[in-house]
Nucleic acid binder design. Structure first.
Length: 290
DNA sequence: AAGGCGTGGGC
DNA sequence: TGCCCAAGCCT
């Protein structure tokens, strides 16, 4: 029996403050929800909105995308980042056509088996698109629970069993309320209980929050690791792929050489892009999107 | 099971 | 100004 004392304030807050997002509208398809979830992995809503709209217009169903070369997905992905997600979404569309008659599956296990779909995304699609009861545990929800229940500013670096148990204990019993709870807590984390500068005065859980009751103690422990960037393979890969993405057809080596000076690193990254399926060699000195 | 994987906006 | 961050997944 879940502790329901937190439900009503959060559900009421959500009813009042939820954003109108395309993938949340009643007419949104499960495919729209799945596409949004892949795009939103590590990427802000504001950047996803235009790409998601164009994507759904061009490929309204999984079968539409599955019929395209993977390179078209990579190109349409644009600057969302982590372009392997575009390949995974394309592969998911192919799997949906092959294994599920072109219909996005509603069962958690079937969703989890799709490329690019992990525990969070499988639970999110089952919950948001099909109204099923699941533990939808993303970084927003983890942060809200860490603060309200755990009394600390940030959740641990990797998901723990204790966190999952806490989250599971909070999920309402019935499917419909559980699904609304999932999206509502996420929204609270995204808009109010943010990582930096949380808007506690606007929070429906302020009076119930253990972290606030403790005086909002700052994060205690090892510094949370940021991601290295300048000079890394990731930056190099991004530069190289941007050239391929923006080109109309194949490009000569010289165009790739122009965007990265370190020769061994550039060659290593180019080879890795080919291995990853994000690029193909089309001739002795030319490359293109697959 | 840490670390790799893009990108750009906000403070 | 840099630094931190944004609905994770995969190996």
């Amino acid at each position: 029996m879940p502790d329901s004392t937190l439900h009503e304030p959060v559900l009421a807050w959500y009813a009042e403050h939820q954003r109108d997002l395309p993938w949340r509208r009643p007419e949104a398809s499960a495919w729209s929800v799945l596409v949004s979830e892949l795009m939103l992995q590590q990427t802000p809503v504001a950047r996803v909105l235009p790409v998601h709209e164009a994507w759904l217009e061009r490929w309204p169903t999984p079968a539409d995308l599955a019929a395209e070369p993977t390179g078209e997905a990579v190109r349409a992905w644009g600057r969302l980042g982590y372009p392997r997600r575009a390949l995974r979404l394309h592969a998911a569309a192919v799997a949906i056509v092959e294994r599920h008659d072109g219909v996005v599956p509603d069962a958690y296990d079937d969703l989890l088996a799709l490329p690019g779909v992990g525990d969070y995304t499988a639970a999110a699609v089952a919950s948001f698109a099909y109204g099923r009861r699941h533990v939808v545990l993303d970084t927003n929800v983890r942060r809200v629970i860490a603060r309200v229940v755990g009394g600390v500013e940030h959740p641990p670096a990797s998901l723990t069993r204790a966190e999952r148990d806490r989250a599971a204990a909070l999920v309402p019993d019935d499917d419909a309320t559980a699904a609304t709870w999932a999206v509502a807590v996420m929204e609270l984390g995204a808009l109010v209980c943010t990582a930096a500068n949380p808007r506690c005065p606007a929070c429906p859980l302020a009076s119930a929050c253990a972290w606030r009751a403790a005086g909002c103690p700052p994060h205690d422990g090892p510094p949370r690791r940021g991601q290295a960037w300048a000079g890394t393979d990731r930056q190099c890969r991004g530069r190289l792929l941007a050239v391929l993405r923006e080109a109309d057809g194949a490009v000569h080596r010289s165009s790739l050489e122009a965007v990265w000076d370190d020769v061994p690193q550039r060659e290593r990254c180019l080879a890795a892009l080919v291995t990853d399926g994000l690029a193909t060699r089309t001739g002795p000195d030319t490359y293109a999107l697959p």
